[in-house]
Design a protein around this nucleic acid. Structure first.
Lengths: 217, 217
DNA sequence: CCCAAATTGAGTAGTACTACTCATTCCAAC
DNA sequence: GTTGGAATGAGTAGTACTACTCAATTTGGG
């Protein structure tokens, strides 16, 4: 199909999963495959070797897929990034798109999709998992809200983000106040402001949001 | 190696991961491989075909690995079960062992391990991921507490389990009371009893425990 | 049939968090 | 050089949950 080899990076912390991806992608004729089992190594390989396409897991030790994407978006690279994830969280998808991702696949429906995605992004296109498209479609009424949500999260200040991080670690106001050398009232006020920005109310809502969207902070 | 084929079931909801496992296990000469992408199908295949060994993901749609194990432990089967999981939660392991599991592997360290594990359990032995052994070892001081914890969880009544399920879904006492047509006071009392049994205190502790140990309820 | 456990419910006091409003300080941008 | 956002903190009232105690009813197993 191509007179030259396609070079590929597969980054995932599960060896068995990498084996599955590798075997699937070897259906493509003439591929050269690199592997990374953790985020920093993946980033280094992309920066040093600049493979044509990189298939990267969203959640990895070292650096997450989004963090890698963020670094590469700043510095620029010729490598096309495809993100692979278990998580059906549409927010990650929007986040990734804004960081210039070329493909986004859900692990659950990604055998033939994966081959397609690599071909497509290598020839300059973009590829999104049908399952994810369906999810976005089914949430189409909420699409507007989702964009607003991302905007809301981006509107959080650094102190507010820090508090969200600590909340996602099940810290109480009291513990957070101690950790940050602040008054409990300060933390309470920050929480109130965050709840306003994210339009959340109820006892658990902030902690739930912090935990379910851990990677956004 | 064997004059007859080893029959294997691979159960996991991620096609790419199944591909990885399948490819790895095809290193064994003479294997016959069945696949299932969800828990009920996996259970059905084991009950109908009774393959020699079944490699099952802990978290799957339909039925979880522990649920399958539980059913088979009741009814009895000749199939040897190996559980594969991402979660480094030692409690699941103890739970699985008490349900007669023959092997327990962590996805992160399981390429050569997997082949070893299948060989070992097929010839009547048991196999535990070294990484998990290390975890158990490193938590050895807590081993006693872990056993107590499992005992504690097993001591919960069905109403208490139901409340834990709802708590793991971020329901408030008020919502749970409505759902179960009970007084809020009843739910509060159940929560207090659960906290006693699990030796938990603090605002978030019960919800946190319910979420982090979702599969135990 | 009876006993123990489970389920349901309440009283009371206290803690943790929410939902508003308001005030001070500080820093950076226009 | 002032203006606006961010960080810090407090007042007050109310809600949600905890931490105890106590008790009535139901239910399953010996």
């Amino acid at each position: 199909m191509h007179p030259y080899k396609i070079s590929l990076l597969i980054a995932d912390d599960h060896p068995l999963f990498r084996a599955g991806v590798k075997q699937t992608l070897e259906r493509l004729e003439a591929v050269e495959i690199y592997e990374a089992e953790e985020g920093n190594k993946a980033l280094q390989i992309i920066q040093d070797i600049e493979p044509d396409v990189a298939v990267i897991d969203l959640r990895m030790p070292g650096k997450t897929g989004l963090e890698i994407l963020s670094v590469l978006f700043e510095s620029g690279t010729s490598t096309k990034i495809i993100l692979l994830t278990m998580y059906k969280n549409v927010n990650y998808f929007y986040q990734a798109v804004s960081l210039g991702v070329k493909g986004y696949l859900l692990k659950e429906t990604a055998v033939q999709d994966l081959v397609e995605a690599v071909k497509t992004v290598h020839s300059g296109g973009t590829f999104i998992s049908n399952r994810l498209k369906a999810l976005i479609e089914s949430e189409k009424t909420d699409e507007f809200q989702n964009k607003l949500l991302i905007d809301s999260v981006n509107s959080l200040t650094s102190s507010e983000r820090q508090i969200m991080k600590l909340l996602s670690d099940w810290k109480t106001n009291c513990e957070i106040a101690d950790l940050l050398f602040n008054s409990i009232r300060t933390i309470e006020n920050h929480r109130a402001n965050i709840s306003d920005k994210l339009n959340l109310r109820g006892v658990h809502s902030l902690v739930q949001f912090a935990i379910e969207n851990r990677e956004l902070f």
